[in-house]
């Protein structure tokens, strides 16, 4: 049995004495409010408890006095398991944003800045001749992220290559979360979607690489190791 701190015992006893003292007066003043049998029960219980409390410091552990039927405790109510103890959300293993996340972000930002700084120090951005409407460079290429599109234009009608295919790609990308009804995020459950995406990305990457490095004058097919690279960033 856990030991009850002395000040709590004192406080409990004081409260009970007050209740017991007020009982006599209360029964006269407001006797019609509380049914007699309840008052009796309370009194019996408080007598028993007072006996326990009184004996506790002296007896040093096992209560001497007991209530009716030898009980020292009363059952107030039964709290069904799951009604309040069971939290709805499972506890999540969390760490403090500072320092765990902020330190990582700071180092990443620093590394990125350092890389960009050194790279910009070593490699200059291209600045060709001033724009001239009368001199069309051969080949003329779009920025690298559109070269897949430009490559597509050599294969299909502009209506298909320039509008339908990229438009469908963009719409498929936007609708991906609404089309993919599989709720799992485990890679082994998502083989279809991951392979679709990989094919999509590979298709695009290959087109971009061909457009960037394998297209020379007239946007004709070349090999970069044979004719050089026709590519500016």
């Amino acid at each position: 049995m856990t030991e009850i701190p002395e000040h709590l015992l004192k406080r409990a006893q004081a409260a009970r004495e007050k209740a017991a003292g007020g009982d006599a007066g209360g029964a006269q003043a407001g006797g019609d409010r509380i049914p007699d049998q309840l008052l009796d029960r309370t009194k019996a219980a408080s007598d028993g408890a007072a006996a326990v409390v009184a004996s506790a410091p002296a007896g040093g552990g096992v209560p001497v006095g007991a209530g009716p039927g030898g009980h020292t405790q009363r059952l107030l109510t039964v709290v069904k398991s799951g009604s309040i103890q069971e939290a709805k959300a499972a506890p999540v293993d969390k760490v403090h944003t500072w320092p765990h996340l902020l330190a990582v972000e700071f180092v990443a930002a620093l590394a990125c800045t350092a890389f960009l700084f050194v790279f910009s120090w070593v490699v200059n951005a291209p600045l060709l001749q001033a724009a001239d409407f009368n001199k069309t460079p051969n080949p003329s290429k779009a920025p690298w992220y559109f070269l897949g599109l430009q490559e597509l234009l050599t294969m299909f009608h502009p209506m298909i290559a320039g509008v339908t295919l990229p438009g469908m790609g963009l719409i498929a990308l936007i609708l991906a979360p609404y089309l993919d009804r599989n709720a799992s995020n485990k890679p082994e459950d998502r083989k279809f979607m991951t392979s679709m995406m990989t094919m999509f990305l590979m298709f695009w990457a290959v087109l971009t690489i061909i457009g960037s490095f394998f297209r020379g004058p007239g946007f004709n097919f070349t090999f970069p190791w044979r004719d050089g690279i026709f590519f500016e960033l």
Binding site: L128, A130, A131, D132, K135, K141, P143
Partner: peptide, 10 residues
């Protein structure tokens, strides 16, 4: 420059 003009043209 020439790069900018013609890339954007394309």
């Amino acid at each position: 420059d020439q790069l900018a003009l013609w890339a954007v043209t394309v």
